[in-house]
Nucleic acid binder design. Structure first.
Length: 447
DNA sequence: TCTGGGGTCCTAGGACCC
DNA sequence: TCTGGGGTCCTAGGACCC
């Protein structure tokens, strides 16, 4: 039996732990640049605020409905997530951390009343970190996700579901007719793996509810849609098609991108931003013990500004040899900007993606075709790269200890007229303190 | 004025091989 | 008249997730 444990409105709930004034109020958390709503409390959902809705469209609710907005504080959410995941791990032999607020637990071999166990776990998470959660139990990942959906809906709309399904719901314990009824009351788009496009197409074929989907022909779905949808169907019928992955490999690609706080028109500004993103990406790369073989760089104008001339630069640079060295990665990224930049555009966003990742330490021997190296000097390559690794490790240590960018590549901070620019940096006017990860920002308790 | 930032997997089609 | 029959690898694009 699998469980899907997930925090309710994670980011809002994290903020509420430290700001009691946010409890019971409509609250949204804003993306970087305070641009869009990326998390909503139930009260904010009730006001009609949609996921990813631009802030300027709902801003008027501040005055009329008491809506409260805070800037995203990912450092806080990440730390709260680790604490929550550690508690969950105590309750099951295997855990797959699926996202910042969700994990699958595998209770295989655990005996006793799993619903009672999960209620106990919820209480522990609430007591020890202060986050509200819901748990779905089912024989497959898709059914556990569905059960979680029911648990949440039953909590949010007490009238429309049996009371005992709220907060912790085990579809394995629901008899067939009652399950069919739940399926019939749920739209296909609410099922994990069925997004907007597929549900529209399913609706066209007359399949609107989960019940109708569950009774569809598997071969037909595979033919008309994809093997992915066929798996989803089988999982709804209790046939497991997606294994629990409790030992994830490192990422296959690493992306750092941002929208700018205000439009950037100069090449210096783009070089600076792209250098910064490449440096951040390189840090992540070393953290997972990988090297990259290619760097993708893009910068683009805003598609929302219809009157602006549009330009999108995007290029992938293969590297001579895989590297995790910030200097090489920043150099490649900045070089790409110099080749692709066009003056006269208002750029709104940029990013750096590291690709074709491989484990560090797998060093491919090189065939030297240039021939300016003495015979026998092949040995200098590993020696050199080990010095690089030491330098990078020292840089990471210094930056961890003395703050991000204590040591950095010069192009990360363009200098014009002697002043540091960073014109691209994000706006975050409403960010709360990083209560759990910075000594200087710890909450105070008045006695 | 103002529109997020990460990721994964699958498929189709082209280049190329024998 | 009539033009094989397998493969692999790579890439771009589309779908999905939170």
């Amino acid at each position: 039996m699998l469980a899907l444990v997930d925090a309710n409105n994670m980011y809002v709930s994290c903020e509420r732990v430290f700001s009691p004034r946010l409890r019971g109020r409509p609250v949204v958390v804003l993306s970087s640049n305070d641009g869009a709503c990326i998390a909503r409390s139930n009260e904010a959902k009730a006001l009609g605020v949609k996921m990813a809705q631009p802030w300027f469209q709902v801003r008027h609710l501040e005055k009329t409905q008491g809506l409260i907005a805070v800037s995203a504080n990912f450092e806080l959410y990440g730390d709260m997530s680790s604490r929550m995941m550690a508690i969950e791990a105590r309750y099951a032999p295997r855990q797959e951390i699926y996202s910042i607020d969700e994990s699958f637990l595998d209770f295989d071999g655990v005996r006793g009343d799993l619903v009672a166990l999960c209620r106990d776990m919820r209480a522990a998470i609430w007591r020890e970190v202060g986050l509200p959660t819901c748990v779905g139990l089912g024989p497959t990942k898709t059914l556990a996700k569905f059960a979680n959906h029911v648990a949440k809906e039953a909590e949010r709309k007490p009238g429309s579901y049996p009371r005992h399904l709220a907060q912790v719901c085990n579809v394995g314990a629901i008899d067939r007719p009652a399950l069919e009824e739940l399926f019939a009351a749920t739209e296909v788009g609410d099922i994990w793996g069925i997004g907007r496009r597929i549900s529209a197409k399913l609706n066209e074929s007359g399949i609107r509810t989960v019940r109708e989907l569950a009774h569809s022909d598997a071969a037909m779905l595979r033919k008309q849609f994809s093997v992915v949808l066929e798996k989803t169907l089988l999982e709804l019928r209790g046939v497991s098609c997606m294994a629990l992955d409790d030992q994830p490999e490192g990422r296959q690609q690493i992306l750092v991108s941002r929208s700018f706080g205000k439009a950037v028109t100069s090449i210096d500004g783009i070089v600076e931003a792209v250098s910064e993103f490449a440096a951040r990406a390189a840090e992540k790369l070393r953290q997972q013990g990988s090297m990259a073989s290619a760097v993708n760089v893009f910068f683009t104008t805003s598609p929302f500004r219809k009157n602006d001339r549009q330009h999108e630069a995007n290029v992938t640079i293969p590297l001579v040899r895989p590297t995790a060295d910030t200097r090489h990665l920043v150099g490649a990224a900045a070089g790409a900007v110099h080749r692709l930049f066009r003056p006269g555009f208002s750029y709104a966003k940029a990013g750096v993606m590291l690709m074709d990742l491989q484990a560090a330490g797998v060093q491919q021997a090189e065939l030297d075709l240039v021939g300016d190296v003495e015979p026998g000097s092949v040995d200098t390559v590993p020696a050199k790269s080990s010095n690089q690794a030491k330098l990078m490790a020292a840089m990471d240590t210094l930056n961890r200890r003395f703050g991000r960018d204590a040591v950095r590549i010069a192009s990360q901070t363009a200098v014009s007229n002697g002043a540091e620019t960073r014109s691209w940096s994000v706006r975050q006017e409403r960010r709360t303190p990083r209560y759990t990860t910075r000594w200087a920002e710890m909450p105070w308790v008045k006695c």
